[in-house]
């Protein structure tokens, strides 16, 4: 299914960030590793910045084979079990990430199975980072869950995210991401959830006054390849790609945790009040969320997944039976 010019197998790779973003630069590094490692038999041709379409479409195309690879967010429209990625406080610290968010963790094998159903092989996970909530007015009682925060917050149209922020004590308004900057500028909304420090610094620093590092979301993109295409490679070449995917995964943890610190500092330098929470507080938030919010994911497939994850992490999860 791939273009075959001057003998090399050319893999078209979809990226969703601009040229400077680590997501793209790491993909380029991987492309070099792969080309060298396969002695030029496999070349990755990268189309960053959603050039060929957004992640929903790219995911579909990787399944079909009209695109070969991608380092992209994963859509939930084909398999709603992928909504697990929005489950707040599934992870609350980078320690959790190191242990439970790897290719051979329970979540890793669950994700592999989900992608395989679409004819897609999971080669790596790219940590984009922990997000928080940025506001243009101070939140009341930021560390007390369920207590009114006196902030009108923009939420994406994702039920679990909307439900969680409401449970935290925010008033929620749904609004397209493209309208958030203007909404904050004019006061139509007073804050938004879903961004980590880098995004908040680069895109919203002029319209926010507070940033709360709630770690209420953990964003990751997946390194995916069309399975039939992958299987046409020799097992040695397959291994080169797997190794490169593993390296990309490891690098991403370092990159994203460093970026978080760096951009929190930059926000503080801009005069934005950056509020962090200690591990005990974060675990408290997590507990509150597990008890009050996780049941929003009530599809049997989703519940089964969460139970397996809870087993691995050593706690009991029993959703209120409906």
């Amino acid at each position: 299914a791939s273009n075959d010019r001057d003998g090399a197998l050319i893999l078209r790779v979809a990226g969703q960030n601009n040229d400077q973003h680590p997501n793209t630069t790491e993909l380029r590094k991987m492309a070099e590793t792969v080309e060298t490692g396969t002695s030029g038999r496999v070349r990755m041709e990268i189309y960053p910045n959603n050039q060929l379409g957004d992640y929903t479409l790219m995911y579909d195309e990787i399944g079909q084979g009209t695109m070969h690879m991608g380092l992209i967010s994963t859509p939930t429209n084909l398999d709603n079990r992928l909504e697990i990625q929005f489950l707040p406080y599934l992870f609350s610290t980078y320690d959790d990430i190191d242990r439970y968010f790897t290719l051979d963790s329970v979540l890793g094998s669950q994700l592999r199975e989900i992608h395989r159903k679409q004819d897609i092989e999971l080669l790596g996970l790219f940590a984009e980072g922990f997000g928080g909530i940025a506001t243009s007015v101070p939140a009341t009682n930021p560390a007390k869950m369920g207590v009114d925060k006196d902030v009108v917050l923009r939420v994406p149209e994702i039920p679990i995210t909307a439900g969680h922020t409401k449970a935290m004590g925010f008033s929620t308004v749904s609004m397209a991401y493209a309208d958030v900057y203007q909404g904050l500028q004019t006061g139509a909304v007073e804050g938004w959830t879903g961004g980590h420090p880098l995004v908040n610094y680069l895109q919203f620093k002029d319209v926010i006054s507070h940033y709360y590092q709630y770690n209420n979301m953990f964003e990751a993109t997946h390194l995916l390849i069309n399975r039939p295409t992958f299987q046409t490679l020799s097992s040695a070449d397959q291994q080169v790609l797997r190794d490169a995917g593993e390296t990309l995964t490891k690098n991403s943890f370092e990159i994203s945790s460093e970026a978080e610190v760096k951009y929190r500092k930059k926000m503080a330098d801009e005069g934005i009040e950056v509020v962090e929470f200690d591990e005990k507080e974060l675990k408290g938030f997590a507990k509150h969320t597990q008890q009050n919010v996780w049941s929003i994911l009530d599809d049997p497939g989703q519940v089964a997944m969460i139970k397996e994850l809870a087993d691995e992490m050593g706690f009991d999860y029993s959703p209120p039976s409906s």
Binding site: G53, D54, T56, L57, E61, Q64, T66, A176, A178
Partner: peptide, 19 residues
């Protein structure tokens, strides 16, 4: 020599825009 299967979904996904 492209597989035409991606074209219509691509056009559709782009039209699907609030703007």
């Amino acid at each position: 020599g492209y597989d035409p299967n991606f074209l219509l979904p691509y056009g559709y996904s782009q039209l699907n825009s609030t703007l």
